[in-house]
C-alpha cells in the first residue's frame, strides 16, 4: 500500500471539558480530491490545525505524507500548502508584498507560477490587504497556498467569498493539481463544490466521523425517491405499511415516497392503483447530508 497523503488514527482533541474531535480515523490517498464536510462547529478546522501541527492532538495521531504532523511539522510544512478558514493577512502589506515575503520565507526564488496564479485569479497586488474585499483576500490566500506547488493542499473553506467565475477558476486549478498527482484536502460546510470536485468525502458532526465514502457510493446509498401520479387521490396508508417506505408529500393524485426497503412491493402497490405517471430517482445528496447534519441540539456545542 502506498503512503497515504493523510492518515489519522483515533485522532482526538479536547479543550478543557469540550471534546472538539473524537477518535477520527480517515485515510486520504495521494492524487485525490478529498472533501471534508460538516456543519459549522463540527471539528473540521480543529482537525486541519492538527494535520498542520499547529495544535497537538490530545489522543491518537495524524500522519501527513508519511510524517508525524506534530513532531515533523517543519518537513510537513515544506510539502504542504495551507489556506486557513479564517484567513488573516497583514493589513498594511500589499498583495505583492505578501507573495514576495512568503515566497522568500519558503526559499522560493522562481515566482513565475505565483505570477500565473495572480493573473488567473486577477489578484489585486498593489493595495494593502486592509483595503481588499473578502473575495480578493481569499484569492490572495489561494495564491499563497498554491504558489510553491506543494504535494498536498489543505484548504479550509477555500471558496468562501469568491464569485462564481472565481469558483470555476478554483475548480479548474484543483483539477489541474490532482491531474499532476498531487492531493487536495478540501474542507467545506457546503456540499455543492465538494460533490463537483471530490473523489471521496468524509462527513463529521459534533467532532465524530459520520460517514466516509466516494461521492458516488454515498449517492447510491441515499433513499430512492418515487413520485407517482394517479387518476384518483390515493390513501397514504396503502404505502405506509410497506417495509422501508416513508410517505412524503401528497397532493390529490400525486404522492411522493422515500424507499429504503425492497422496491417490488412498492411497484406492485402503485401498479394496482392505476397510475398515470411514475418517476424514480435517488434523493439528492443534499438531503442525505442535511439528514446526517441533523442531530439533537444538546450535542451541538462544539469548538471548531
Amino acid at each position: 500500500m502506498s503512503t497515504a497523503a493523510i492518515e489519522t488514527s483515533l485522532l482526538g482533541k479536547t479543550y478543557g471539558e469540550t471534546r472538539a474531535l473524537v477518535e477520527l480515523s480517515v485515510r486520504v490517498e495521494p492524487g485525490q480530491v478529498f472533501g471534508f464536510l460538516g456543519p459549522n462547529g463540527a471539528g473540521k478546522t480543529t482537525t486541519i490545525r492538527m494535520l498542520l501541527g499547529l495544535q497537538r492532538p490530545t489522543t491518537g495521531e495524524a500522519q501527513v505524507l508519511g510524517l508525524d504532523a506534530w513532531a515533523e511539522s517543519v518537513e510537513v510544512h515544506r510539502r504542504v500548502g495551507y489556506l486557513p478558514g479564517e484567513l488573516a493577512l497583514y493589513p498594511r502589506l500589499s498583495g505583492r508584498q505578501h507573495v514576495d515575503r512568503f515566497a522568500r520565507a519558503r526559499g522560493e526564488r522562481d515566482l513565475s507560477f505565483a505570477g500565473q496564479l495572480c493573473e488567473r485569479f486577477a489578484v489585486v497586488l498593489d493595495r494593502p490587504a486592509r483595503e481588499l474585499s473578502k473575495g480578493n483576500r481569499q484569492k490572495l490566500g489561494l495564491v499563497l497556498a498554491f504558489m510553491h506547488r506543494p504535494e498536498l493542499l489543505i484548504l479550509d473553506e477555500p471558496t468562501s467569498g469568491l464569485d462564481p467565475l472565481m469558483q470555476d477558476e478554483f475548480e479548474r486549478l484543483v483539477r489541474e493539481t490532482v491531474a499532476e498527482g498531487r492531493t487536495v484536502f478540501l474542507s467545506s460546510h457546503g456540499l455543492d463544490e465538494v460533490q463537483r470536485l471530490a473523489d471521496r468525502v468524509a462527513l463529521i458532526r459534533s467532532g465524530r466521523l459520520v460517514a466516509t465514502d466516494t461521492v458516488e457510493s454515498l449517492r447510491q446509498s441515499t433513499p430512492l425517491r418515487i413520485e407517482a401520479r394517479f387518476r384518483r387521490p390515493v390513501e397514504p396508508d396503502l404505502f405506509a405499511h410497506l417495509e422501508g417506505v416513508t410517505v412524503g408529500a401528497r397532493d390529490g393524485g400525486r404522492i411522493t415516497l422515500q424507499v429504503t426497503g425492497p422496491i417490488a412491493p412498492v411497484l406492485t402497490a402503485i401498479a394496482e392503483r392505476d397510475p398515470v405517471d411514475i418517476l424514480s430517482r435517488h434523493a439528492d445528496l443534499d438531503e442525505l447530508f442535511l439528514e446526517l447534519y441533523r442531530e439533537p441540539a444538546a450535542e451541538d456545542a462544539r469548538a471548531d
Binding site: V74, Y82, A88, F102, A105, R106
Partner: peptide, 14 residues
C-alpha cells in the same frame, strides 16, 4: 489572536 501567526507557523521553520 489576530490570526496572522498561523501563516508564519505554517512555514517550514521550527
Amino acid at each position: 489572536e489576530d490570526g496572522t501567526l498561523c501563516l508564519i507557523a505554517a512555514l517550514p521553520v521550527r
